[in-house]
Amino acid sequence: MGVTILHQFPMLENRTGPQTIEFLTKRIVALGAVQMGQFLVDCDSYISMPSLGPQRTVHVLHNSEQPASVFSILETNTKTIPLVADGLFDLLMLKMTPIYTKKVAKIESKGPRFELADFCIKLGSVTISQNFKGVLVEVEYRPCVVPSNCVGLMREFLQGFLGSCVQSLPACLQNKMDEVYQPMDTIQQYLDHFLNFRKMAGYSG
């Protein structure tokens, strides 16, 4: 697992989602990347019953890069608790329906996955219940595990094919620059972007 940066690619007025993906695919293939399959990251959110005290939200995410794991992030008013579990966690959530009533529509990002030398690039189109919302570009540099080491390198690579829209690093990476990067950090970045998309679409949660 190498350092990963997730970046939202701004949509132009006259371009649809598939057109944007195709446009980025052309650029990345011109750099010499090879398509290696597809990827999918999805997120379900469950909200606790109001009668059980202060509201809590559980986000359950799956990443096709770690197919045997289920990631969950529990949000309370004061803190967020991340948890990595195996596939059985999904079944456990089904049993929890009396406490956590599912309320929010599923949001997912999926699309082609490319490899270029040691980089892994994923062009995901984000959909909330089949409605297209935007484009998320994920770039992973697999040899490097400490974000502070490869910030400059990643920025150069991102600017190389996304253009000058790449400015700063994701907020959730800023305070763990010197720690070893974990798959959970990728999930956290996806969740941050997903919540933004939901907010824009007017969903609560």
């Binding site: 040899p143 502070s148 080491n149 490869c150 390198l153 150069e156 690579f157 190389g160």
Partner: peptide, 13 residues
């Protein structure tokens, strides 16, 4: 390795 750019061309990659 990952943090210092090339002395000649000045870029990382």
């Amino acid at each position: 390795l990952f943090s210092e750019p090339c002395k000649k061309c000045g870029s990382h990659l």
